[in-house]
């Protein structure tokens, strides 16, 4: 993959007063891929997205999108990028179709230029039957689909999505994931933030894990899992005595106690499962290690508030 990155960040720093929200971040987003920012609340993900849209300035570093430099060429960048914000900000005074036409107009596109495109987008978002409904008559999932359709009205090269499926039910999340995969297959670059591990694992070709304004690591979901955690996890719920815990620690690569649960990370689960076969009153869950384990390993388990 020797293609030029569509987004290139070097040494990005962003401060809010004394708070350093983003602290020297470097990344390259390759074209026609889905690139994810994964991190707890306050990690600097949304701020990073705002910077690459030219909606937030930065204190140091270099940032270019589609060959345009920020902040000088922000308008040119926004003409080629679509944004799906965290909270829907559709226009409540307009119908579904009018929302799309009006948004096109902000890009300098006339009704005639986008008429065909608006029909396609309504189809894409499964909203053709709701085209003349008012926005407040739509369900949350429909509003989200309309917001995604709206972000495509300028036929963007990059679509930026800030937590695209938060607050949606599982069915709707799957529908939206399907639509986003379709976009990527058409050559659109997707950049998204999420704290749903499943979403990151399913959608993202490449991820950066962020916390406290820094990038902790980056790579494909598979690479990150191989690099940071053992392939198997055994989770124990219930009373685990210190003796058992000590034994588990010696048998595994890593063993952690969090609240009432114990997590055993290992490359050889069978011995441990055999050992645990004798333990009573414990719920034992054996599973493949996933991104969530990487995430918790890298960002810790303390609460973020």
């Amino acid at each position: 993959m020797l293609q030029e990155p569509v987004i290139r960040a070097r040494g990005l720093v962003k401060c809010f007063g004394a708070l350093r929200a983003v602290e020297g971040v470097d990344f390259d987003v390759p074209p026609a891929r889905c690139f994810g920012f994964l991190g707890p609340n306050g990690a600097g993900k949304t701020t990073t997205l705002k910077m690459l849209m030219g909606l937030a300035d930065f204190d140091a570093g270099e940032l270019s999108v589609l060959g345009f430099e920020l902040p000088a060429q922000a308008r040119a960048i926004r003409a080629r990028v679509g944004l799906v914000p965290q909270g829907d900000n559709l226009d409540p005074d307009f119908t579904v179709r009018e929302n799309l036409f009006m948004y096109a107009r902000f890009f300098g596109l006339t009704r005639r230029e986008v008429a065909g495109r608006v029909d396609e987008l309504l189809e894409f978002a499964n909203l053709t039957h709701k085209a003349d409904a008012r926005v407040d008559q739509l369900s949350g999932g429909m509003q989200r689909r309309l917001t995604i359709a709206r972000a495509l009205v300028n036929d963007p090269d990059i679509v930026v999505l800030d937590e695209p499926t938060s607050g949606l039910d599982p069915q709707m999340r799957h529908v939206i994931w399907g639509r986003l995969s379709e976009l990527r297959a058409r050559g659109v670059t997707l950049v998204l933030t999420t704290h749903y591990m499943e979403e990151a694992e399913r959608l993202c070709d490449e991820l950066v894990v962020m916390d406290h304004g820094r990038i902790l690591d980056q790579g494909s979901p598979g690479e990150l899992i191989r690099r940071h955690v053992e392939p198997d996890v055994i989770e124990l719920r219930g009373e685990v005595s210190d003796g058992v815990f000590a034994t588990l620690s010696s048998m595994s690569s890593r063993c952690e106690r969090h609240g009432t649960a114990v997590y055993v990370y290992t490359g050889a689960p069978t011995v441990i499962l055999d050992f645990l076969g004798e333990a009573d009153g414990l719920t034992v869950i054996h599973r493949r290690a996933g991104l969530e384990d990487v995430f918790l390993h890298l960002t810790g388990r303390e609460l973020r508030e």
Partner: peptide, 10 residues
């Protein structure tokens, strides 16, 4: 948040 929506355009 209409202004936010418009600010994401050029």
């Amino acid at each position: 948040k209409t202004f936010d929506a418009i600010m994401a355009t050029p």
